[in-house]
Design a protein around this nucleic acid. Structure first.
Lengths: 249, 249
DNA sequence: TCAAGATTTGACGGTCCGTCAATCAACCCC
DNA sequence: GGGGTTGATTGACGGACCGTCAAATCTTGA
């Protein structure tokens, strides 16, 4: 029954359309407050009831909106993990991937910040998908950390587990992005310090964790150039002139 | 006119009462969603209109609620900065103070996360006070960083400014607290790793920044014991059996 | 062409924020 | 004590928003 298939595709297309629109509302002025089921319905040829056919609640819409940047993150992390080099170079590629996701999907931070309140009322299927992707994301990173330990570049055990290393890198990046994006307290302090800072500080943290080769023993500037040109050539271009326009320098 | 003074004190007392109640609602289940002007009015002998005599908006109430943990933070940072020892020991005392504030005022994180949406409609006087305290807070930390540079313990310049060091420490701590508190993605990874982790990772980050004396050259376990017993003896006790009950270990 | 089934609609109930005219209390002066 | 002025207090109300659901509309298959 091809007609049924057509219809299903039409519905999937509509969902894409809705998500794109919702994303624009979320990244626009007003942030989380700017996205409203009411306004989203008005901005489309469909009514509110139809919206709720796709997303059981606003939280569910946000979850659906979150899946795409999460999937991109997983894909980029996978690619980063394939970088040809030492484990520490690969984890740096992961940090570069963080920056790409942040630049291309600024709404992701808004959702993560706003989801804190919600958490309920998300379609179980979607919630499961999110959990699955998230597990993949941490899995890729943890794999690199364990590779480093296996290669003798990093000494785990005692107070420092692979999870701790991953959490440290993730928390530093998250805190920086939050401080960078939110019009909060460190606004004037962060101003001028572009996202380059995140990569630099992550690299220094790796030194502090004793992850070899240390900064003084390796030319990581060259590593980063290779990462950008070999792993994320397209994304680097899109970041500089693409949709997620933002100051870089 | 003592009667007028009585009245003013009564009003100030009522504001305290309202703030305490609001704080309880915020830390209770539901978080930001659990605090409602409506419910707050119902929980007191006063009506909604009277609430709005104290706080011009819900954002304003949140701002008022934020001032107390901010002030505590400033006070603790000041005390930490007076610790008798090397600059790196003093910045570690600041990190310990972070942990105290997080333990005693868990609502602070909720507010910071939720304020991201608001930002407007805050009484200018309150906003100014917040800005002033925040400036004091970063000032204390930056002072210690600059002390370290002056003492030759830390090499600034080039890519690394005093602000960058401060931002790095703050971001790492913020990211960890967010991941710890939010029922989010790293829940299961963070589980088991108590807030001790924050101090340990901060210390390692300091190593990565080249802030002497490095971990291998100094007994920071002893430093931390001295910090808890000399700088925050009361707070350490309150954290373990006080209001802000939370798992520590 | 028509009936069964699926989809869409927008009005509606409920919650919450913030306002304001009406009410109430305190205070002051005679 | 009485009456007027000033300020505090109230809760009903308007508006925004989420989520629901019976009615209307469209699709499909015979």
């Amino acid at each position: 029954m091809p007609q049924s298939l057509w219809k299903r595709k039409a519905i999937a297309d509509r969902e894409e359309e809705l998500l794109n629109l919702a994303r624009r509302m979320l990244t626009g002025p007003g942030g989380m407050h700017g996205l409203t089921m009411e306004r989203l319905a008005e901005a489309t040829p469909y009514s509110k009831g139809t919206l709720y056919q796709h997303f059981g609640s606003k939280d569910d819409l946000l979850a659906a909106l979150w899946i795409r940047p999460l999937q991109l993150r997983l894909e980029l992390y996978r690619r980063a993990s394939l970088f040809h080099g030492r484990a520490r170079e690969r984890i740096l590629a992961i940090e570069a991937a963080r920056r790409v996701v942040f630049a291309l999907h600024p709404e992701s931070e808004v959702i993560e910040g706003g989801m804190f309140a919600g958490q309920g009322n998300v379609n179980p299927k979607r919630a499961a998908k999110i959990a699955e992707i998230a597990a993949g994301i941490s899995g890729v990173s943890l794999g690199i950390v364990r590779d480093a330990a296996a290669a003798g570049d990093l000494t785990l055990g005692g107070e420092l587990t692979a999870e701790h290393v991953y959490i440290a890198l993730r928390s530093l990046a998250y805190g920086l992005m939050h401080g960078w994006q939110s019009t909060g307290v460190l606004q004037d302090l962060v101003a001028g310090a572009g996202p380059e800072l995140a990569l630099d500080l992550a690299n220094r943290l790796l030194d502090g964790l004793g992850w070899k080769p240390l900064l003084r023993d390796w030319d990581y500037r060259n590593t980063l150039e290779r990462i950008w040109s070999e792993v994320f050539p397209d994304e680097a271009r899109r970041m500089n002139d693409g949709a997620g326009r933002r100051r870089f320098g």
